[in-house]
Each structure stands twice: as C-alpha cells, then as structure tokens.
Amino acid sequence: MRKKTLIITLMLLTTLLSVYVISVSLSTDVKKIAGGSVEVKKYNIKISRINDRVWGNFLLIVDVDIVVDVSGNYNIKLTVWNDGDSRTISQTLYLNVGTNRVSFIVYLREGDVGFSHSVEVSPA
C-alpha cells in the first residue's frame, strides 16, 4: 500500500511541476505580446507581371512586377527554365508599398519548350 501511495504522490508532484513549468512559459509568452516586444507583421505579396525580353534566340532579361503592402527589404529569387537549361538569380532589394519593377539578367537559350518562371519573395 505504501508503494502505491508513493507512486501516486510522485505522479501528482510530476503533474503539478509540469503544470507550473507550462504556466510560467505561457505567462512569459503572453507578457511578450502584451509588452509590445513582439511585432506581428502580415505580408501580402503579389507577382502581377512577368515580362520576357528576348533578343534572337536568347532570353536576356526578365522583368517582374512585385506588389507589396509592407515596405522593406525583400529577398527575391527568380528561376527560369525550359527543356534544356535553367537559371536562378537572387537579389535583395528595398521594395516600396505598391508595385515595384525588378529586372533580372538571365541569358538563357530558347528551346522547344517555352519558358517557365518561378518567383519567390520573402522579407529579408
């Protein structure tokens, strides 16, 4: 019977300790938010236009229009590919609220398959 009581007491103590630790952690998080030390930002990014500038059989420049609603530095990564080759170019730029035109020098030969573009934008 003593053994049982001991086990139950240990279980209760462990439980109480866990509750205490979790509560302290939760309280710290709440304080961070209430104290304004945590800034929550929502970025709505739109890629509104992709323009391929071609010279002869080569894609030279890709213009990308990026619409952002929070100004700041952004990492922009463009990947262009066709059936034969691909290019990935990254830039970090300051974008203003509204539409921003960003150009990438690509230099990629045209193939039998058209160009596919992938644009990745993230706050720097």
């Binding site: 929502k42 709505n44 739109k46 391929d52 058209g114 596919s116 573009h117 644009v119 993230s122």
Partner: peptide, 12 residues
C-alpha cells in the same frame, strides 16, 4: 511574419 503569396509560378 505571415507571408502570403511569396511564391508564384508563370508558365509560357
């Protein structure tokens, strides 16, 4: 930092 629309794909 909630980012919406960070990745877009255009296929020609």
């Amino acid at each position: 930092n909630i980012v919406r629309g960070g990745l877009a794909e255009y296929v020609y």
